[in-house]
Amino acid sequence: MDDLLTYGITRYYADNGEETGFKLWQNYRMDQVKLLKNPGYTAVGTYYYDDYGVIFASLKKDLPEADKLNYKDKFLQPDVFQWESMAHLPVSDLAKLRASSYAHLFIGKVSSENGIVLPFTYVGKGTLHNCRKTETGNGTYLFDVVMEHSLPDYLQYDFGLTK
């Protein structure tokens, strides 16, 4: 029993270190992130808690250009992500986004692979800036999310920053 406990604790620290919360560049499923606050609700990709938000953005690199829902989610620089809100964003949700201190950002590069839904990669905390209404007429807003940590070189190609 002692060996099993020692192994489990050692493995936990090897995987997670001393960090609490989300670990940068690690993969999470949406249901793991929502932290039991609303676990069954998966209709949207943005959640609001206290003074922060949680954003799930999908780059959907696996879909043809015409099928990408025309969202303008992309990295502008290694430490700035452009995020487009859901269509017909309610005024109350826009106010929560503008008032948020920060947002946790999770990005999915493809929706599925070989029939398996892939997780989202946690790219860190960022602050929302430069809120502007899009000209698409569908009630979406663009934000620049200025990240605390720059996207590492090894992820820049996967997330469309470099060709």
Rank of each mutant, 00 (worst) to 15 (best):
L63I: 11
T140E: 04
L161N: 00
G160T: 09
E65A: 15
F106I: 13
C131I: 05
Y52A: 06
T127D: 13
L24P: 07
T42F: 09
L63Y: 13
K37G: 01
G160Y: 05
V80P: 00
P64D: 08
F75W: 07
K61N: 13
N130H: 06
H88V: 07
K96H: 11
T6N: 09
G17I: 12
Y13C: 09
T6Q: 08
K60G: 05
Y52K: 08
V33L: 11
K60M: 15
H129R: 15
Y157K: 15
N130A: 03
L36I: 02
K68Q: 15
L69R: 14
E19Y: 11
Y122Q: 02
E113R: 12
Y122S: 02
P152N: 09
W25A: 03
T140I: 02
A95Q: 14
L4M: 05
L161H: 00
L97P: 07
T127Y: 12
L59R: 06
D15M: 06
A103T: 12
L89T: 12
S111K: 13
F106E: 11
K72V: 02
H104M: 09
L4K: 13
N27D: 11
L155M: 15
F106D: 10
I55A: 10
G124C: 04
G126M: 12
Q32A: 08
M147V: 10
K125A: 03
G115K: 01
K37F: 09
T136Q: 04
K72I: 01
T136H: 09
L94R: 14
Y49V: 11
R29M: 10
F81S: 06
K68R: 15
A43Y: 02
K133V: 08
Q26G: 04
L63R: 13
E19I: 14
N70R: 13
G137W: 05
K61T: 04
G115P: 04
D144R: 00
A99T: 07
A14V: 11
A14P: 01
V117I: 13
